[in-house]
């Protein structure tokens, strides 16, 4: 089998919060245009893993990171890395939808504006494109100047996706994006993810093993900071190699 282009490679990645080790020598690859699902019980290090990838972990006090993370062959903890450019390249969707307290338009134009795009026509174009890609355009096109806070939960989450798409990222990280949503909204977000895969590489952290089995191409199982198993989703859910994976996906703990 020919190795696909690996977008993200982590080698022996360790993360400590103070004395507590949250990730223990994680080595894995995320391939281009796949959805990598990451499952595992609470506090298994899944969200930490996402936060290292776009260096949001820098915000947390007293953290220490060792090992290497290569994104398109560039070491992201290396010297002279433009963290802001990195975060534009690796977008992030949070567990709870957090619209900034401003209009729908301004929410989506936020990233491009900070990157120096000032022209109104250009911003309008980006906003429309992003909203369409997140399946929100039809619902909000007549009220772009409304506050983003006035949208429903599902709409807010799609707004957040659109906001990330406006950065024209290459990788999108989803941190339990449906944990606060009802089944219908969850379905819409999942649909959007499957569509996004055509143009982006996605990493999806989820508490919901069923969700991983529905959308992920490959799935990784994290437990207490360790990577227990990574495999094709179908294989992992039918014939898990590790006993602990089997226990987890069959709901025996977690």
């Amino acid at each position: 089998m020919v190795d696909k282009l690996a977008r993200i490679v982590t080698e022996e990645l360790n993360v400590w919060y103070g004395a507590h080790q949250a990730l223990k020598s994680i080595s894995l690859k995320v391939e281009a245009n796949e959805i990598l699902g990451i499952i595992g019980p609470a506090n298994s290090g899944k969200s930490t893993f996402l936060q290292v990838l776009n260096r949001l972990i820098d915000l947390k006090p007293q953290t220490r990171v060792s090992g290497r993370i290569l994104i398109d062959n560039q070491e992201i903890f290396g010297a002279n890395i433009d963290v802001e450019a990195l975060r534009r390249k690796i977008g992030m969707i949070f567990a709870l939808p957090i619209p900034l307290p401003m209009s729908i338009f301004d929410n989506i134009a936020y990233g491009p504006r900070r990157n120096g795009i000032k022209k109104k026509s250009m911003l309008e174009e980006i906003v429309e494109e992003s909203l369409k890609a997140a399946y929100l355009w039809d619902e909000v096109k007549d009220r772009l100047s409304d506050s983003g806070l006035n949208l429903s939960g599902g709409q807010q989450q799609r707004l957040c996706i659109a906001r990330t798409l406006a950065l024209k990222p290459e990788v999108i990280l989803f941190d339990e994006p449906c944990s606060g949503l009802d089944p219908v909204s969850t379905g819409k977000v999942e649909e959007a993810m499957l569509e996004l895969k055509k143009n982006y590489t996605l990493v999806l952290v989820t508490n919901n093993t069923k969700q991983a089995s529905r959308v992920a191409d490959r799935t990784a199982f994290f437990l207490m900071g360790e990577l227990i198993e990574i495999n094709n989703t179908q294989e992992m859910f039918t014939v898990p190699r590790d006993k602990r994976t089997e226990d987890y996906i069959s709901g025996r703990f977690g």
Binding site: L56, L59, E84, M92, F94, P101, R114, N115, C160, T164
Partner: peptide, 27 residues
């Protein structure tokens, strides 16, 4: 001002100062 606003702004590629100026201070 909720910490999550800062995280969102930074995750959208804004610098620290841009985050303070455009999100934290107005609120």
């Amino acid at each position: 001002v909720p910490q999550s606003f800062r995280e969102v702004s930074l995750s959208l590629g804004a610098s620290k100062w841009q985050t303070i100026w455009h999100v934290v201070l107005p609120n």
